[in-house]
Design a protein around this nucleic acid. Structure first.
Length: 258
DNA sequence: ATGGCCGCTATGAGCGGA
């Protein structure tokens, strides 16, 4: 079973590239972030024609998440369902291929002195509560998405430049570590101990050409899923060329239960 | 030293992204 997380940065602007990639890679489950469209304008026909069922949670202009699967998507939930007023479409979960899949678009945070920063940190706390309320570490669980945080300096092309900047601050990393401590593994890092591999490169300048990026797109797996994971790769090729998202897709491959 | 690109909405910039 191949599961992908990919910040697509507007699914309407990138439908052709997405479909071509799906047809080439044939993943079983695809978690998309920043679809940037309300559900009525989602390119459902193209995705369906490519062989995928869809659960979506969109909004106009910003945010938006969706899960694509070659098998039915069951028990779909949208948002955290907590008592915090929040109209940002950043969370969708579903069960498919026998796995509970939680797809996240974590708030960017903008800067440490922005009011979006405490919102981001609080959001991680709400995520932990959501996981405790709706799942358990002993289940077949994948929590993936654009986490908008580097786990540590191994995920940063220039740690000195990024030190204490957004995506690299200690409180953000501690918040992500708390999610792992709940009972999830950073499965890319488990299989690739060395750093220096990125999932995002800034559109500006020559950052991709010079390979100046961050690893902020993560696949977190419960213990049984970590044990089943045979590969986890970042498809740098998907960042190349015209009309690419600024994020590359991250793919985890899982063997069958033995 | 600064900003450098992109998509959205909307039709001119401004916002958000990371």
């Amino acid at each position: 079973m191949k599961l992908v997380t990919w910040n697509i940065n507007s699914i309407r602007a990138r439908t052709a590239r997405l479909i071509a990639w799906l047809e080439a890679e044939r993943p079983d489950v695809v978690c998309l972030q920043e679809t940037k469209t309300e559900d009525a304008k989602f390119p459902l026909e193209a995705v369906t024609k490519a062989g995928y069922q869809v659960a979506m949670f969109g909004q106009a202009s910003y945010n938006g998440v969706a899960i694509l699967s070659t098998q039915p998507l069951e028990d779909v939930t949208r948002g955290f369902g907590d008592d915090v007023p929040d109209d940002e479409a950043r969370v969708i979960a579903a069960t498919t291929h026998g796995v509970r899949v939680v797809n996240l678009y974590v708030p960017n945070g903008q800067a440490l002195d922005s009011d979006r920063y405490p919102y981001k940190l609080a959001w991680f706390g709400r995520l932990r509560a959501f996981l405790t309320r709706t799942s358990a570490p002993d289940r077949a669980l994948v929590v993936c998405g654009d986490m908008n945080v580097t786990a540590d300096d191994q995920d940063v092309w220039a740690p000195a430049t990024w030190k204490d900047q957004i995506h690299c601050s200690q409180p953000e990393r501690a918040a992500l570590a708390e999610v792992r401590a709940w009972g999830l593994d950073d499965v890319f890092r488990v299989l690739t101990p060395a750093g220096g591999v990125w999932s995002w490169w800034d559109y500006r300048g020559v950052s991709f050409f010079k390979n100046q990026g961050l690893r902020i797109d993560h696949i977190l797996t419960s213990a049984s899923m970590t044990a089943r994971c045979t590969a986890c790769t970042i498809d740098r090729n998907a960042r190349k060329g015209q009309d690419a998202s600024d994020h590359a897709p991250v793919t985890a491959t899982f063997g069958t239960i033995v």
